[in-house]
Design a protein around this nucleic acid. Sequence first.
DNA 1: TAGGCCATCTGGTCCT
DNA 2: AGGACCAGATGGCCTA
Length: 207
Amino acid sequence: MEDIGLLFDFDQDGSTDFAFWGQMDQNFHFQTQLESFLMDCQAASGQLSPWSTFGCQSVFSDAQLTLTDLDVQSPGLGVCAEGEGCPADEPLEAAKRRTRRLVLHQPYKVQRHAANIRERKRMLSINSAFEELRCHVPMFPYEKRLSKIDTLRLAIAYIALLREILMSGSDPKSYIDECMKNGYKNQSDAIWNTSDLTARLSWIKWD
DNA sequence: TAGGCCATCTGGTCCT
DNA sequence: AGGACCAGATGGCCTA
């Protein structure tokens, strides 16, 4: 038995899109196992969190295309170890296959790489949530994209103001007009001040 | 060119 | 044990 790690770079951007690792023996049928593994992941991707539609599906649809003409050899034959160069005369299907294959005898490295991928996808899901939040905070039509911290702060201020409107029982439009005229009273957390928030809200069609 | 923002990597900690 | 979460470090890009 031998530890093996495989890193895939489907889009050739130099970063690993997918990692596979485990142990292998002489009877290891690489293509069959990898293919069924990818199929399992694809089947599961529909149940995964938002990143799955963004990252996982595209990765795996690519993977299927790659696998169809992926002349995968038994690991150990012409496989390059990380940090070593492949022999120059090797028929470098690696580039053709758009696949970076590694044999790692240090399982830690492979696990670390897999953790990096998970972390990247976790950040993607966070970013997609930020995008969604940006759609719900008041923006000027000409305004450039809000940063993450500004999105959070504006969302907090927006929620606070909406709560006040509800508590006041008055018409939202007239409440905003009042704020524009007299200033927004609640300045306790004035990261977004009166003119910022109420001016944004004045763009909203309340009817 | 400095500062802000962001993506990524990484190691530590927490949770299941 | 492995994955999720978090925060620090780093480097790239953009803008004033």
